[in-house]
């Protein structure tokens, strides 16, 4: 993966901030399990409140470390500008790519990694404590997972194409933009405006298709959850309050992972194709 090549450029402090962010997420998952068990054991409201506040403070601490990681990684990436030979690419990297890499690609992967660990922790408690539920969801999962895989394959390809067309478009317009002073003198700025509008057609189609796939992730997951709930109730099952809470957290983590995946795919493709 392209991101792995970037890790060596991160400072020790940035790596430390990223690791602590992931660590805090995992601790939060354990507190979630503790909260779920307390719910099932009918603990007092004050105990539940203490756990809730602890969970909230841990969430804030995670956000603080996560932001610090994001900002530090941006500056680390900006340092990389010194390694680029071409001036245009250098400016583009300093202004745009360094920001995208830090705030979207690297933070995206940290988020995916931390939420996947959270999923593992939460899934383990479901597996241990609610084995019956696992049995119930195995069948729907076997059907939906290949469909999801197919969906993400299409999504990744659409991202690849969108990135290619986006770069073609940007590079083409970048060759035209320097002529703007001449266009002002001879009174044809409209020519450059027309170029910006008219040459965007292919890029717009490819990008719209890619955004469609990315935005469809949420409704697709929502419908799958609805089907799973209907399936669960149609088999005359009841749900414990702790399981509802864990289920809610699991869905949140699944959504974070699937929401970030297309975005990081997109930026990985963009960086690969930009030749930086």
């Amino acid at each position: 993966m392209y991101t792995i090549n970037l890790l060596k450029y991160l400072s020790k402090q940035t790596i430390y901030l990223g690791v602590v962010s992931i660590f805090l997420s995992v601790i939060a998952a354990f507190i979630d399990i503790y909260f779920a068990i307390s719910l099932n054991n009918n603990e007092t409201i004050s105990i539940l409140l203490y756990i809730g506040v602890l969970r909230f403070l841990l969430g804030l601490l995670f956000i603080w470390f996560f932001i610090k990681f994001s900002m530090n990684s941006e500056i680390n990436m900006k340092e990389l500008t010194l390694n680029i030979d071409d001036n245009e690419k250098r400016i583009n990297f300093f202004n745009n790519y360094s920001i995208s890499i830090a705030h979207i690609l690297l933070t995206g992967w940290v988020r995916i990694f931390s939420e996947t660990l959270v999923l593992l922790v939460l899934s383990s408690i479901i597996f241990i404590k609610y084995l019956e539920v696992i049995k119930l969801i195995i069948m729907p999962a076997l059907i939906t997972i290949p469909l999801l895989a197919l969906y993400f394959f299409a999504l990744k390809n659409s991202r690849k194409l969108a990135t290619k067309e986006q770069l073609n478009y940007i590079n083409h317009i970048l060759t035209i933009l320097p002529i703007i002073e001449r266009a002002r003198i001879i009174g044809t700025v409209h020519f450059i405006r027309d170029k910006i509008i008219n040459t965007a057609k292919i890029y717009k189609i490819a990008y719209a298709r890619s955004i469609f796939f990315a935005l469809s992730t949420k409704p697709i997951i929502e419908i799958l959850v609805l089907i799973a709930i209907i399936y669960f109730y149609s088999n005359k099952n009841t749900i414990e309050p702790g399981l509802i809470y864990i289920g809610y957290r699991v869905l949140g983590s699944i959504y974070s992972v699937f929401n970030n995946l297309p975005i990081v795919f997109h930026y990985e493709q963009q960086l690969k194709q930009s030749g930086l």
Binding site: I176, I179, R182, A183, I185, H190, F191, D194
Partner: peptide
């Protein structure tokens, strides 16, 4: 009068586009 400096910028496109620039 119109002053044109010595810088020449050729952009990606046909000769016609490069010369006429929308005229």
């Amino acid at each position: 009068a119109i002053y044109f400096d010595s810088s020449i910028i050729i952009f990606e496109g046909s000769i016609e586009e490069n010369i006429l620039m929308g005229r």
